[in-house]
Design a protein around this nucleic acid. Structure first.
Length: 671
RNA sequence: GCACCCGUAGCUCAGCUGGAUAGAGCGGCAGCCUCCGAAGCUGUAGGUCAGAAGUUCGAAUCUUCUCGGGUGCACCA
């Protein structure tokens, strides 16, 4: 709603400037003043005009003041400081529009493909993977159509590198270290299943063991590394026992990853796999396309002689001789590199490859099916390779290869696709020394001096996602048990689940993407202050008021039975009076913050930054708690005032529930 | 060596396209439950925004340099 007003005012001022001064300003700033006493909107436009008109900013502001005051919806205009124009909104009219849930329609045309999680299927997910999945899932929720917004047609996929070296490592561990053959692996998986053991946890340890085993005996290292390479080649070739073992294990681990993520409300639509990219020859098609367009060429001289290369993104002008800085896509032995395959895959994403995967049903969620790539596939099936815009949630350590893929699209002439290729990057997650020690890892003095310790799957070093989720929920459960002994256990479980998941997701999403997170159990388990439970609690408190006032709380916002009509029944003059003065302003501020929801969402989408939503959610919750403390609603004797206060709580709760839903956080019935 | 990211209160972090007296949370100190749930609220102390120069009416924000810290730069995947 704030955004609607802002746009409207920008338009009117732009028009006014043309009429008055014949000046067109491209981006007219309309800011939120630092304090409510300065009004609700501030224009620094006079500073901007000062240069062009060669007049003092303050004089210009004074000229504009009476003209701005005539704009509908503006109650008054003041000149402040060196030339600020501070606008005060018509509170009554604005509150009525917010109550009616007027807001900007966020969304647009075109299919958006969000890719996230993409964990190698050879070990359990850890905190670093959680950051990826939580960021990606929240971003997809921000884009997707829902009851609030038309949104964008959005698909979520999770890329599975099931033929990579990490899977080969696990196969080596199982076959060589454990001496199993294909039949034995089948039995083993069944045993694990029947004894309720988590395959991903078992693989976590196996992976660490085999990684150490490669290096354990210097005389054997070369042979063991060769074994790993041979295994990898068998996986890539397919149709052999080794690849069958890999398939069984990687699929089993993948299912575990989906279960882990589902605990956090994270779901996928499609799982494209590396094995199909290989067997459907995506690369060969892309390769021909790149050669035809002169992007990929055979290097005939210098250190890269014999390899097929492309120019590096952002490379300087070519000098004489071979481009030794060029990126190798095909090695001189004929094998394709990771970036090469990734280019082919991204041509598919934009529907530019002329090929598609086969699709098969893989995993059922309560509301939809998750599909997986196959060679043949089943019919009918959905299709994902026709994106208008893509978002790849990948660690910022992949900045360079990602830039190279984007560059390949550009030089192939697909500039629109390249421009709509967003690498949604984020800094990695490390552990604090305290948490690493708590987990039983030995810490060196050098580690202790650093801000964080890096997690490592190869060393088996890290916080496993399920362990973390378990602890978060257990901590919440202990609190719920103490506070609500009267509730049945199933209900307490459900509440603890919502709180534990909410605390975890909020904790991860509090940090902006380029901030390195030094994960610490103590910080994550905090439920006070700027946390998920704080925001949830504000919404729960609001619901409690309605419950005690006799409303049906399943309905949200002004839909509470009778509230809307009672609110509409308030005489405008009475409403206006109730929104003035210090008391009135403290109520009005809640509405003002609530009205900013759509604007904040729009900015968060543009910046691909869910942290902007957590920031806002906390600010609104804080404002509500403040309001809650100051105005006692249920004992209010003036009916009109009581209605206004109830409406204030209802609107705050409405927007809290909405913003939390985009963060993947639910509001429990009680807490 | 080259490229990218970061350096803001004791700690952890915000600060949107340059804008008003740099903000939160945690921790510290002092208070608030005969009033809708204290996972809450109020007050208070705490900052040469790493340093320097520049651009500008105006710089935490833009430019350059210096100092710290991190990451990426393989015919590894």
């Amino acid at each position: 709603m704030y955004r609607t007003l802002q746009l409207n005012i920008q338009q009117q001022i732009a028009k006014l400037l043309v009429e008055r001064y014949s000046i067109e300003l491209s981006n007219l700033a309309v800011e939120l003043p630092p304090k409510i006493e300065f009004g609700e909107m501030a224009l620094p436009v006079a500073f901007e005009l000062a240069k062009r008109l060669k007049k003092a900013p303050r004089a210009i502001a004074q000229e504009l003041q009476p003209l701005l005051a005539q704009i509908p919806g503006i109650a008054s205009v003041e000149v402040a400081g060196a030339g600020y124009l501070n606008l005060k909104l018509d509170r009554t009219a604005t509150v009525q529009r917010i109550a009616a849930d007027e807001h900007a329609a966020i969304g647009g045309r075109g299919f958006r493909l969000v890719e996230h999680t993409s964990i190698n299927p050879n070990k359990a997910a850890h905190v670093g993977h959680l950051r990826n999945a939580i960021l990606g899932d929240s971003f997809a929720r921000m884009l997707r159509p829902d009851a609030y917004k038309p949104g964008y047609d959005t698909g979520v996929q999770n890329y599975i590198d099931n033929t990579g070296v990490q899977v080969a490592d696990i196969v080596v561990a199982v076959t060589t270290l454990e001496g199993m053959n294909l039949d034995r692996v089948r039995e083993w998986l069944l045993e694990l299943f029947e004894t309720n053991q988590r395959l991903d946890y078992v693989c976590w340890d196996l992976y660490a063991r085999v990684s150490q085993w490669y290096e354990a005996d210097p005389t054997q290292t070369a042979a063991r590394k060769q074994l790993r390479l041979d295994t990898l080649h068998q996986l890539e070739a397919g149709n052999n026992d080794t690849s069958a073992i890999a398939e069984l294990i990687s699929t089993g681990v993948l299912r575990r990853h989906l279960e882990t993520m589902q605990r956090l409300g994270i779901e996928y639509d499609f799982l494209p796999r590396e094995s199909e990219i290989l067997h459907l020859h995506f690369w060969e098609t892309a390769r021909q396309l790149m050669i035809d367009k002169g992007v990929l060429y055979l290097e005939t001289e210098g250190k890269n002689k014999g390899a097929w290369v492309m120019r590096r993104a952002g490379a300087a002008e070519l000098g004489k001789g071979p481009d030794e800085d060029a990126k190798i896509l095909v090695r001189s032995n004929g094998t394709v590199t990771y970036v090469g395959k990734d280019i082919a895959y991204h041509l598919w994403k934009f529907g530019l490859l002329g090929k598609d995967f086969g699709y098969a049903k893989f995993y059922e969620y309560p509301t939809h099916t998750c599909w997986i790539s196959t060679i043949e596939g089943e019919d009918p099936h959905p299709s994902f390779g026709h994106a208008d815009a893509i978002y790849n949630v990948i660690d910022s350590r992949q900045d360079d290869p990602q830039a190279q893929v984007k560059e390949a699209l550009r030089v192939l002439g697909y500039t629109a696709a390249s421009d709509r290729y967003t690498h949604l990057n984020y800094a990695f997650v490390g552990l604090t020394a305290r948490t690493a020690e708590e987990l039983g890892y030995t810490i060196t003095d050098e580690d202790r001096t650093r801000n964080f310790i890096e997690v490592s799957g190869r060393k088996g070093f890290g916080v496993k996602a399920d362990d973390l989720i378990d602890r978060m929920i257990a901590a919440a459960k202990a609190e719920v048990d103490a506070r609500h002994p009267e509730l049945p256990d199933a209900e307490r479980e459900e509440i603890a689940n919502a709180i534990g998941v909410g605390a975890l997701r909020f904790f991860i999403l509090r940090f902006t993407r380029n901030t390195v997170i030094a994960f610490d159990y103590k910080d994550a388990l905090a439920f006070d202050g700027e946390t998920g439970p704080y925001v949830q609690y504000a919404a729960v408190r609001a619901a409690n008021i309605f419950r005690k006032a006799g409303f049906e709380t399943a309905r949200v916002g002004m839909r509470l039975a009778g509230l809307e009509s009672a609110f509409k029944g308030i005489d405008p003059a009475t409403l206006s009076a109730m929104l003035q003065g210090e008391e009135g302003t403290s109520v009005w501020e809640v509405w003002l913050t609530a009205s900013r929801l759509s604007m904040v969402l729009e900015q968060a989408i543009a910046a691909a930054e869910p942290a902007m939503l957590t920031r806002y959610a906390f600010a609104l919750a804080q404002q509500f708690n403040n309001f809650y403390h100051r105005h006692h609603i249920l004992t209010e004797t003036d009916e009109a005032r009581k209605t206004l206060l109830l409406a204030t709580a209802a609107v705050a709760r409405r927007e809290l529930i909405r913003v939390l839903s985009w963060l993947g956080i639910t509001v429990p019935a009680a807490m």
